[in-house]
């Protein structure tokens, strides 16, 4: 399977140059979305290896050669990452895109410039129409099965997560203000009643209804100096309408730490 000497392809060289251009655009514009994804995955996992094989005139299209090209690509990316780090070039999107673009452009140019007259032109062996149709049908079947597998896995997981019903109650903030947040993951609209008690102030009672996935929050002013051993700085009791007792409860005796103190 890997006994052939391989060849050098102008089409591959142009494809590498195109990928280099895409990466250059990403480096300059930092574009997300459609520009990312598949082209960049191709550029990282196949570009350097296929480019290397093409530049050496050893391009082959069989599963083993492609696998070795992927290995070469991964090895290249690891070495590039180490080299970038060694020269204090941070591993950011712009730097990665630029470095990979230069590499692919160099390999693409070498593939074009290095072509010799005796490079064997790529000729596809004639495949009978029936076998070709069968191959297409088989590939389509496999793609449908894999896509179906992925969709089933994704949606069953989302359904499994959605079936886990709970309500979150938490507080975040500083020594002056705290944001009290309630998020409903109960799978249905729920009525809540929150009793918010701040040290040194009269307790407030707030009633509200939240749809599944919705969040309610309120910012309250707090004063840590007024908190005592028996009276916390902030106390929130959340009652779920229709469920006896306190459903969720938080209590802050001091503002949350913002950084580890140093002594």
């Amino acid at each position: 399977m890997d006994n052939g000497a391989g060849r050098r392809s102008a089409a591959i060289a142009w494809a590498l140059l195109l990928l280099a251009l895409v990466l250059a655009v990403i480096a300059v514009l930092g574009a997300d979305g459609w520009l990312g994804g598949l082209p960049t995955v191709l550029a990282i996992f196949f570009g350097p290896g296929v480019g290397w094989q093409n530049a050496r005139g050893r391009l082959r299209f069989n599963p083993e050669a492609i696998g070795l090209a992927v290995a070469t690509s991964i090895g290249c990316v690891i070495v590039l990452g180490l080299a970038m780090n060694a020269v204090e070039l941070s591993l950011t999107r712009a730097h990665w895109s630029a470095v990979l673009a230069i590499l692919l452009a160099a390999l693409g140019m070498r593939g074009l410039v290095g072509r010799r007259r005796d490079d064997i032109p790529h000729t596809r062996p004639a495949v009978p129409a029936r076998r070709r149709a069968m191959a297409v049908a088989l590939t389509a079947t496999c793609v449908v099965a894999v896509t179906g597998s992925a969709l089933i896995a994704w949606f069953s997981q989302q359904h499994w997560l959605a079936r886990q019903h709970y309500t979150e109650l938490y507080a975040t903030g500083s020594s002056e203000h705290q944001r009290v947040t309630v998020t409903n993951h109960e799978g249905e609209a729920i009525g809540y009643r929150a009793r918010i008690a701040v040290a040194g102030q009269a307790a407030q009672v707030v009633s509200f209804t939240l749809n599944d996935g919705s969040t309610w929050s309120r910012v309250v002013a707090v004063d840590p100096a007024r908190a005592t051993a028996d009276v916390p700085m902030l106390e929130v009791e959340l009652v779920r309408i229709g469920v006896p007792g306190v459903y969720r409860y938080i209590r802050l005796v001091r503002p949350q730490p913002t950084a580890q103190p140093t002594f």
């Binding site: 990312g36 960049t40 990979l100």
Partner: peptide, 13 residues
């Protein structure tokens, strides 16, 4: 991590 962060950085995934 080098390969993964390279993919993440360049592709935006």
């Amino acid at each position: 991590e080098i390969v993964t962060t390279a993919v993440k950085q360049v592709s935006g995934l």
